[in-house]
Measured scan of single mutants.
Amino acid sequence: MPSETPQAEVGPTGCPHRSGPHSAKGSLEKGSPEDKEAKEPLWIRPDAPSRCTWQLGRPASESPHHHTAPAKSPKILPDILKKIGDTPMVRINKIGKKFGLKCELLAKCEFFNAGGSVKDRISLRMIEDAERDGTLKPGDTIIEPTSGNTGIGLALAAAVRGYRCIIVMPEKMSSEKVDVLRALGAEIVRTPTNARFDSPESHVGVAWRLKNEIPNSHILDQYRNASNPLAHYDTTADEILQQCDGKLDMLVASVGTGGTITGIARKLKEKCPGCRIIGVDPEGSILAEPEELNQTEQTTYEVEGIGYDFIPTVLDRTVVDKWFKSNDEEAFTFARMLIAQEGLLCGGSAGSTVAVAVKAAQELQEGQRCVVILPDSVRNYMTKFLSDRWMLQKGFLKEEDLTEKKPWWWHLRVQELGLSAPLTVLPTITCGHTIEILREKGFDQAPVVDEAGVILGMVTLGNMLSSLLAGKVQPSDQVGKVIYKQFKQIRLTDTLGRLSHILEMDHFALVV
């Protein structure tokens, strides 16, 4: 994948999101292997301009796509893939009243899908469409860049269908997702969380590099694949309309690839034109409109599966009536509230959605109805927002919020430890010299600072030695090549209790 991002070429006709291997024109390309080798690009942008032909009021008969309808489940399912879809609609009884809503608040519980998330729908649909058009064949390999849930859905379907599955996901995604993927037989590649989507090191860039190296491999490409919004247009939206008897006044959905909100909203605009569509985008993402909503100094966020630093091709923002931004604290607070007060075992993005819903639905009156999409299960986040310690460490809970008995030293300040200034190293000294210094002084790690004293990161003896043994660096290389740029900081005025929580999850903390 090139470091400079080429513009994806656009073909003359058809839909841009065809499933299957992508040609340089962004659509299915038939021909000899030699032709494909000559024409197939190194990668295709996940934010390529959409060429979708959908228009409100256009006859369904003019759609270029294969459409399906929700099917009634048999008493005995032939395999677990038949437990994807037909998820329950559940009334939220307490939270709406707590925040003064007059309307009825309903939750579409997508964590009841077989793999635990709304992404099971698009995973199965992308595979079925690729099999139907002859792209996927027995023994082929599926590769997908994902925040985890699409990966789980694909790995689940691949396990049943017999495909090899490789999932490329950023490091910030939970260990629970990784464990589930491994249990399903998927191979996992992790990428830096802070890598831009168009960087060769991003999950998108690495996935395309693997595709170019592995024979008979395919990126189904949830960011561009029409099967993504079509899955929701054909099934999720129809289920909502049936469950609500066609009567709903507002739908609120958090947005990642945009397939969920695009597919549902398009069908609702056709069948229930008075329904307002509300999009939820986390602070630090750029999906919301108008652009002024996205202006923030924050560039990272903890909530998973929603928000991006690019506009995915499948996201149709014209069908969203209003956007709201959400933050991590309210997302996790509301997710825990949904679990504790409503018994809905949902993930953090569901918290984002409901946090926005109780604001947006203030305009609705008694007798009206708001539906929220709860995308995934708490299963993926047992060591994250479900953990009091994690919430404390991230600053989303305060010590006084917890009532468990603490040891005698818990409320003492870090400054009472009488710490001395640490050994520091410059980023320009060599790895070999740094190892000598650390061994001589008896230290395992040291902060790396520039000549102005600005902290650049941390270097550890173990990481340097393993990097040297693996051949990633040489003793003569500058130590700046092996620094940890993500590390926890703590102030002298913070409590030892807070430091204790940090050290339970990290090997060190830097006192500043």
Results as ranks from 00 to 15, higher is better:
Ser3Arg: 13
Ala8Arg: 10
Gly11Met: 02
Gly11Phe: 04
Pro16Met: 09
Arg18Gly: 10
Arg18Tyr: 14
His22Met: 02
Ser27Pro: 07
Ser32Glu: 11
Glu34Met: 11
Lys36Phe: 13
Pro41Leu: 14
Asp47Gly: 08
Gln55Trp: 02
Gln55Met: 15
Gln55Phe: 04
Leu56Gly: 02
Pro59Leu: 12
Ser61Trp: 09
Glu62Thr: 05
Glu62Cys: 13
Ser63Asp: 12
Pro64Phe: 11
Pro64Cys: 04
Ala69His: 08
Lys75Met: 13
Ile76Ser: 08
Asp79Gln: 08
Leu81Gly: 12
Lys83Leu: 07
Thr87Trp: 02
Ile92Leu: 05
Lys94Gly: 11
Ile95Val: 11
Leu105Asp: 02
Phe111Trp: 07
Asn113Ile: 02
Ala114Gly: 10
Val118Asp: 02
Arg121Cys: 04
Leu124Gly: 07
Asp129Arg: 05
Arg132Cys: 13
Thr135Tyr: 13
Leu136Cys: 13
Lys137Ile: 10
Lys137His: 09
Ile143Asp: 10
Glu144Val: 08
Pro145Leu: 02
Pro145Tyr: 02
Ser147Asp: 02
Ile152Asp: 04
Gly153Leu: 05
Ala155Met: 08
Leu156Ile: 05
Ala157Cys: 08
Val160Gly: 13
Gly162Thr: 05
Glu171His: 10
Lys172Phe: 02
Met173Ala: 07
Met173Arg: 05
Lys177Ala: 02
Asp179Thr: 15
Asp179Lys: 02
Asp179Val: 06
Leu184Val: 02
Glu187Gly: 07
Glu187Met: 02
Glu187Arg: 06
Pro192Ser: 10
Thr193Leu: 09
Asn194Gly: 05
Asp198Trp: 07
Ser199Ile: 07
His203Asn: 05
His203Pro: 07
Val206Asp: 04
Lys211Ser: 02
Asn212Glu: 09
Ile219Asn: 10
Asn225Leu: 04
Asn228Arg: 04
Ala231Leu: 02
Thr235Val: 06
Asp238Arg: 15
Asp238Cys: 09
Leu241Trp: 10
Gln242Ser: 06
Gln243Pro: 04
Gln243Arg: 11
Lys247Arg: 11
Met250Thr: 02
Met250Leu: 12
Leu251Val: 12
Ala253Glu: 08
Ser254Gln: 11
Val255Gly: 05
Val255Leu: 02
Gly258Phe: 02
Thr260Glu: 02
Thr260His: 12
Thr262Val: 09
Lys267Phe: 11
Leu268Val: 06
